[in-house]
Design a protein around this nucleic acid. Sequence first.
DNA 1: TAGATTGTTAATCGATTAACAATC
DNA 2: TAGATTGTTAATCGATTAACAATC
Lengths: 225, 225
Amino acid sequence: MKKGKISDLAIRRLPEYLQYLRKLQRIHVKYVSAPEIERQFGIHQTQIRKDLALTGLKGKVKVGHVVDDAIDAILHFLGWDVKLSAFIVGAGNLGSSLAGYSDLNYSGINIISLFDDNPNVIGRNIQGLPVFDVNELDYYAKKFNPKIGILTTPQEVAQDCADKLIKANIKAIWNFTTIQLAVPEDVVILTTCLCSDLAVITHRMKDLSDLKVKNQDIQNANQKI
Amino acid sequence: MKKGKISDLAIRRLPEYLQYLRKLQRIHVKYVSAPEIERQFGIHQTQIRKDLALTGLKGKVKVGHVVDDAIDAILHFLGWDVKLSAFIVGAGNLGSSLAGYSDLNYSGINIISLFDDNPNVIGRNIQGLPVFDVNELDYYAKKFNPKIGILTTPQEVAQDCADKLIKANIKAIWNFTTIQLAVPEDVVILTTCLCSDLAVITHRMKDLSDLKVKNQDIQNANQKI
DNA sequence: TAGATTGTTAATCGATTAACAATC
DNA sequence: TAGATTGTTAATCGATTAACAATC
């Protein structure tokens, strides 16, 4: 079973298809074809076929793919058919908003609770979830067996909290801080850097306005002629 | 001035370097070399050189780059040396947390205010910022001239609010909803999909546990020998 | 049947890495 | 000087797109 390393780019596209497939499911559409998805996303149909093939899904010639099956295949492939328990460490604004971010609950995780070191927050409820003392993380980890730790603390305590999660036998850390975390190699780590997204936006804006200036120049030049 | 299209992947790396450069600046380190950054991030030094070269930065042979200059060059290249005003539309949990997300304020934007349609929220203060009525967006847009709209509304009203932003002459929309927004082509649009990040995490976790099972098999096979 | 679609192999395109001359 | 670094060109690697046979 030689399995070529699967690209993160493909993995990232699957939840987008999933979104669309669920929309189709809600309006009781039974089949969807790659050319249809291409129209939706502007992604080349060959790529869509390859992405879907990754999940093991088979299509029907002239018909496309069964929407329900496609959803199941993607969920299974991503590991979202088994809900993994998650802890959020850092019950600040970001942590609180992720706790209530319903999109995540449609995906592969089940957020159990939040943790913080602020006595004013510990014991309260956020988005219907309890906030526990981060120093009792180990205790609650034994109780709930979380697989994913979502790290939304201030920078200063990020590595320390990551260590606590690792000690509690967590399998993956989703890092929302800008710290370069040190983790053992059997712990999956992914850092979400919103600043990178913003960089893409501002850079494209600069490009657009440069283009405008350039067009202006061309216009001016034409006027001179 | 033939400028090859710059890859988003490069653009996304720049804020990461920036983070590290600022850390060096805080501890008064004057120079940094590409091999040093490579050690930090595990990104190949040739790539780091090319990325920095995009910004127009020149290094000194045997010394590296001046930290202060590198920071300035990246800020300028990304367009972060001029702060763009931004509105957040949707003062729910996510919108509120972005309003207080200090990392963004270290980058190229200046969030002016939030907008919502809920009378219980309108008029309140969130993270020190005022919440206005989304129906008065046009009025406040004339007053503050925002360039970026951050969309954190429920799915149902997302396109509607995007239209409001576009009518108010916004230049870019940062979309946190899962809706495929329709926008004119001179409006920059970027969708942040947290589910894609989660997909990468859960898929890697699946890989790791598959690997564990495989190693187990090998071990079992060896025992039989 | 003709036309639409699948799935796969080949070609192209773009990003990363290797190699190396120049410099201090 | 020797060794470290820059910046650039060439080579490799991987992702996307094109082409096409098979199917219904």
